[in-house]
Design a binder for these strands. Structure first.
Lengths: 128, 128
DNA sequence: CTACGGGCTGGAGTGCGGTTCAGGTCAAGC
DNA sequence: GCTTGACCTGAACCGCACTCCAGCCCGTAG
C-alpha cells in the first residue's frame, strides 16, 4: 500500500509517517518509482507505536525499542524490561490521574454548593 | 515568603514561578525592595495549578480559569463547567491508559513465553 | 564596608514532536 | 499526450512549556 492509504489506516498524517521513518521508528519500505510501498504488517507495528506513545513513552525510547527489535532475539529480555518499566509508569500515571479526578470531583461538588447558596440568596431577594 | 521558599514548597523552579506570573497564572505578589513577597495561600493555589496540569490541562486553559476566578462569583458556573469537562477528559485518559496497560501486560507475557522457549532450546543444545 | 547569596529584568535559547513549504516527480485515466 | 492528484526531498518553521543568561540590585553577616 502507498503512504496515503497507510496514513488513513493508522490515523497518522503522511508527514508524521515520513518523520517516523526518518527518525528510525519505521523501517524504510520498498519503493516503486520512488514511492513507498508498505507491507500490511506496517499497520500493526504503527498501532503498537501509537499505544506506546499513548503511555507517554518518548519517540526516543520508542526508537531504542525499535532498534532492539531490529536486532532480533538476543534483545528480547531487554525489550521485555523496557515494557515492564513502561507498564509501571502507566500504573503510576493512572494513580495520579485517579487522585486528580477525586480532587476535581471535590471541587465540582463545592461549586454546586456555592451555586445552591446563591440561588437561595436570589430567592430571598425576590421575597423582599 | 520570598520566591526561593515558594519554589521549595511547591517544587516549581523559581523561573517557572516567575513565568507563571508573567502569563497570568499567579497573581503578582506584593514587593519589598523589588523582591516578591508571597502570602502562604499562594502555595495552595499553585498546588491546585499543579493538579490541573497533571490532568493535562494547558497553561492557556489554566489561565482562563485563573482569569475567571479573579472576576469573582459571577464566573462560578463557568468555572464549574471547565472542571467538569476536565474531569471527563481525565476519566477518558484513565480508560485509555488502562487499555494500554493491558496491552503491555499481554506483550510482556508474550516475551516471557519466548524466553521460556529459548531456555528450552538452550537445554536441548546442552544435551546434544 | 564589603562580600555574598538571593532576587530582579528582558530576552534569547531549548527540547519535543511534529508541520509546512518550495519545487519538483510519478502514474492512472481520459 | 496531457492533466490531475498523489507522492517525493530537504530544510525551515511552529507551539508549548519552560530554562538560561547577562548584568543589575538588595540586604544581611562578619
Amino acid at each position: 500500500m502507498k503512504i496515503g492509504k497507510l496514513s488513513e489506516l493508522t490515523g497518522l498524517s503522511i508527514d508524521t509517517l515520513r518523520y517516523y521513518e526518518k527518525i528510525g521508528l519505521i523501517d524504510p519500505p520498498f519503493r516503486k518509482g520512488g514511492q513507498r510501498l508498505y507491507d500490511p504488517d506496517a499497520v500493526r507495528w504503527i498501532d503498537f507505536l501509537k499505544a506506546l506513545k499513548a503511555t507517554g513513552m518518548s519517540l526516543d525510547d520508542m526508537k531504542r525499542y525499535a532498534l532492539m527489535r531490529a536486532k532480533g532475539n538476543a534483545t528480547s529480555a531487554n525489550r521485555r524490561v523496557m515494557l515492564e518499566n513502561q507498564h509501571a509508569l502507566v500504573l503510576e500515571r493512572i494513580e495520579e490521574l485517579t487522585a486528580c479526578a477525586a480532587l476535581l470531583e471535590y471541587k465540582i461538588a463545592n461549586y454546586h454548593e456555592i451555586e445552591a447558596r446563591h440561588e437561595l440568596d436570589d430567592k430571598k431577594r425576590y421575597l423582599k
